[in-house]
Simulated assay, not measured.
Amino acid sequence: MTTMNVFTPTSSAKKVMSFWQLVGVPARGASLYTALHNGLPFEVYAKLAKVSGLEKSELANATVIASATLQRRAKAGKFNKDESDRLYRFAEVYKSALDLFEGNNHDASNWLKSPVRGLGNKRPIEMLSTSAETEAVLNLIGRLEHGVFA
């Protein structure tokens, strides 16, 4: 009779949280679509600011959410569908930049706030208010990841 060693996790084994878990947004699929349609919880805003290293005012500017709107959403406890979509777009771009810089938050945040030649010397963080601009930023990140500079 042979015995098998079976791995049993101990209480000291830590589960590594994904980026999407840290910010409180489903990564993809039906749960993401439902969350965006119903409105993301207000806490997502603070979590995104913390994870990205941005000031809350910088995040508000990037996602085109006015301070008066933020105050109303804080009371309501959630964002509307359009605001949720803009927050998600920011999260998607930030996550892609984070992957580009191999998990270095500082470098990813600096890149977002710096003029980028491939975007006509615009700062990526200034190009997140429309889906077309967001797509241009994501496309550039994809090209950079694959070594395509033109």
Rank of each mutant, 00 (worst) to 15 (best):
N110L: 07
F19Q: 02
N61Y: 13
A46H: 14
P41R: 10
A76I: 07
G103I: 06
E83M: 01
V93L: 09
Y33R: 15
V51M: 09
R117Q: 14
R73Q: 02
G39I: 00
A46P: 10
K122S: 04
D82L: 06
P26T: 06
F101R: 05
V23C: 02
K50Y: 08
N105W: 02
H37G: 05
S109K: 10
Y33M: 11
R72S: 09
A60G: 12
A76H: 09
N110Y: 08
Y33E: 15
N38D: 13
T2S: 11
G118D: 04
V16W: 01
L40E: 04
E83S: 02
M17Y: 03
N110G: 05
E58N: 15
M127Y: 09
T8C: 07
G118W: 00
V64Q: 14
P26M: 03
R123P: 07
S11A: 13
W111T: 00
A136N: 15
E92R: 09
K50R: 13
S11R: 10
V64A: 12
R28H: 13
L54N: 09
R72D: 05
S131V: 12
N139R: 14
S57Y: 10
E58I: 10
K122V: 00
L36H: 09
R89T: 04
M17P: 05
G142M: 03
E135R: 15
E135L: 12
A27Q: 06
L140C: 12
V116Y: 00
S129Q: 00
F79N: 05
L138I: 01
T69A: 04
L54K: 08
N104Q: 04
A13Y: 13
N139L: 09
R117A: 12
S57L: 11
A91T: 06
W20N: 11
E55D: 15
M17W: 01
M4D: 10
E126I: 00
L98H: 12
T2L: 11
N38M: 06
K78F: 05
W20R: 13
A35L: 00
L128K: 14
A66D: 13
S52C: 05
I125Y: 05
V93I: 07
A35S: 08
H146T: 03
L70M: 15
L100F: 13
W111H: 03
